[in-house]
Amino acid sequence: MTATTTPPTPPRPRRGVGRTLIRGVGELLITLGVVVLLFVVYEVYVTDLFGERKQAAATTQVDRVWAQSQETATVTASAAPQLATDPQQRVPRYDTVLGEGFAKLRIPALGADYVFTVVEGTDPDDLYIGPGHYSQTQLPGEQGNFAVAGHRVSKGSPFNDLGLLRSCDAIVVETQDDWFVYRVLPMAEEEAGWAAQTRPHCSGVSVQTGTYAGVYGREITVPSDYAQVLPVPTVLSTTVPPDAQRLITLTTCHPQFSDAERMIIHGVLVASYAKAPGYLPPELTET
């Protein structure tokens, strides 16, 4: 009987160095992609959750302070029709502390539930809590520029929808004793035809002239353009002139998911009210 022999197994071809390198690079890129994706998820979603908790804590704190103040208030809800006030007579009765809330910001056009506690300061830790007041700028209702910064994406994303605001939309600021109603200024593209503007709620809103010429409701600028939050935007002076308007300026990153530019929203004060139990400014019902 003849024994059969098994033919030798041919040698496996050796993998080329180039092929091995390409495979290694591919695996590295996949790993990096997963890391980047996880980072994006953390920045966009996880930090939002942390920011909401920090914002809730700041709101609880400011509500506690205001509640203590209301216990000694002498104005009653029955006096609501006479609550319109002259902001020139306003004297702040509170001190701001870095990182702590002192006001609330409401924008009815962005929803009835749009409300954020504004904290003092614009450092990263401050802005993680919520919108932050530029400490060198004026307080709500004062002559000059009450300027506030906020994240557009992540860490609570309070200013994500600022780009949706239109001219004359109300920006309502609540403090311990007062309500201040600002309205977004005309946009640059509306300047020529503004005289014929018949939209509701535009009373008291006009195209800016004189030292305020060129100040519009929405501007896109560079991050270093700090002049936007000065007492008279774009005028390089920290002095509040005697005839200064009472403005609000909101700043955030632009475009979305980038900090290459800044979106600026400017508004002008058109009304103010004294606070009273049960009273809410009518502007809060606008849509």
Rank of each mutant, 00 (worst) to 15 (best):
T252D: 02
G193T: 05
H201I: 00
R15D: 02
M187A: 03
R218W: 00
P282V: 03
V41S: 07
Q61V: 04
Q82T: 10
D169Q: 06
F257W: 10
F116W: 15
I22Y: 07
D86L: 09
L98D: 14
V173P: 00
I248S: 06
C253W: 03
L185S: 14
T238Q: 12
E120A: 12
C202V: 02
I220H: 11
E261I: 01
L98Q: 14
E43C: 06
T234H: 15
V173F: 04
P108A: 14
V75E: 09
V46H: 10
T5N: 08
Y45R: 15
T175G: 05
K104R: 15
I107F: 02
P242G: 07
E71K: 15
V62T: 13
T4N: 11
E120N: 11
A56Y: 08
L280K: 12
E120I: 00
A213K: 15
Y279C: 11
P87W: 01
P186N: 14
M1E: 09
A260K: 12
L139T: 05
A195P: 05
L284T: 09
C253H: 07
H254F: 06
I171L: 08
L165Y: 08
V65S: 11
F116A: 03
T249R: 11
F50H: 08
A112R: 15
P241T: 04
Q89R: 13
S157Q: 06
S167G: 09
V205F: 00
L247T: 00
F102R: 06
L280G: 10
P81E: 07
S167Q: 05
V62A: 10
K104I: 00
L38S: 12
E261R: 14
T31N: 08
L236N: 15
A274F: 09
